[in-house]
Amino acid sequence: MRTIVITVATLSLAILASGVQARELSKSHRFACTWGSDIAAGAQRSKLSGVSLYGARKQLQVRKFQQPWMRMTAMGITEQTYNSSSKLKPAAVKQTYYEQCVRHELAQR
């Protein structure tokens, strides 16, 4: 019984700490992670629907981006997504990308 109480308390602290860390990310870092996760989900959607990597890259070439860095970053994310053997649904790819991006940004500090 005592072990369970300690484990629950430890888990509660870990959840609280992760919430605090997520809030520590700047608005621009949260935007970049959200934007990247959207690109990854779109690439996974294209891949699963049978669009070739060439076709996906061509779609990105004609797309308008807000910032100059976005086009090449989107190309890289798309290529990595296509090179992955993952068959996850786009929503799962989006969530995974976002979580790993946040973890990466926090680790940089």
Results as ranks from 00 to 15, higher is better:
88 L>V: 08
75 M>K: 03
97 Y>S: 01
62 V>N: 10
90 P>K: 00
52 S>I: 03
88 L>G: 05
75 M>I: 08
59 Q>K: 07
41 A>W: 00
34 T>W: 09
77 I>D: 00
56 A>N: 00
83 N>C: 05
77 I>F: 02
91 A>I: 01
43 A>C: 04
3 T>F: 15
46 S>Q: 12
67 Q>G: 04
85 S>V: 06
88 L>Q: 10
97 Y>A: 05
33 C>F: 09
50 G>W: 00
67 Q>Y: 11
105 E>Y: 10
103 R>L: 12
64 K>H: 08
50 G>F: 02
62 V>S: 13
3 T>L: 15
39 I>T: 06
13 L>N: 11
89 K>S: 10
16 L>P: 00
12 S>Q: 11
57 R>D: 01
57 R>E: 03
44 Q>S: 06
38 D>A: 14
28 S>E: 15
6 I>W: 13
72 M>H: 07
65 F>S: 01
77 I>H: 02
13 L>S: 13
99 E>I: 06
54 Y>Q: 09
27 K>Y: 14
71 R>L: 12
50 G>V: 01
9 A>W: 06
62 V>G: 10
8 V>N: 03
60 L>E: 04
28 S>P: 11
17 A>C: 13
31 F>I: 06
8 V>K: 04
39 I>W: 01
18 S>C: 12
53 L>P: 02
79 E>R: 03
35 W>R: 09
51 V>Q: 09
90 P>R: 04
102 V>R: 11
10 T>Y: 10
38 D>M: 13
59 Q>F: 08
33 C>A: 15
93 V>Y: 04
99 E>R: 05
30 R>Y: 08
33 C>K: 07
74 A>W: 01
40 A>H: 05
85 S>Y: 05
57 R>Y: 01
51 V>F: 03
55 G>P: 03
108 Q>S: 12
100 Q>T: 04
48 L>Q: 07
59 Q>G: 00
83 N>S: 08
74 A>G: 08
17 A>Q: 09
69 W>Q: 02
47 K>V: 03
61 Q>E: 11
62 V>I: 11
102 V>N: 11
3 T>W: 15
19 G>S: 12
65 F>T: 00
27 K>W: 14
12 S>C: 14
72 M>Q: 08
19 G>F: 12
62 V>L: 10
32 A>W: 09
48 L>C: 03
96 T>V: 03
8 V>Q: 10
12 S>P: 08
67 Q>I: 04
39 I>H: 06
58 K>F: 08
15 I>K: 06
36 G>C: 12
36 G>P: 09
20 V>G: 11
101 C>E: 02
91 A>P: 00
69 W>R: 00
65 F>Q: 03
63 R>S: 09
9 A>D: 12
3 T>G: 15
79 E>S: 05
99 E>V: 09
17 A>F: 13
49 S>E: 13
98 Y>V: 03
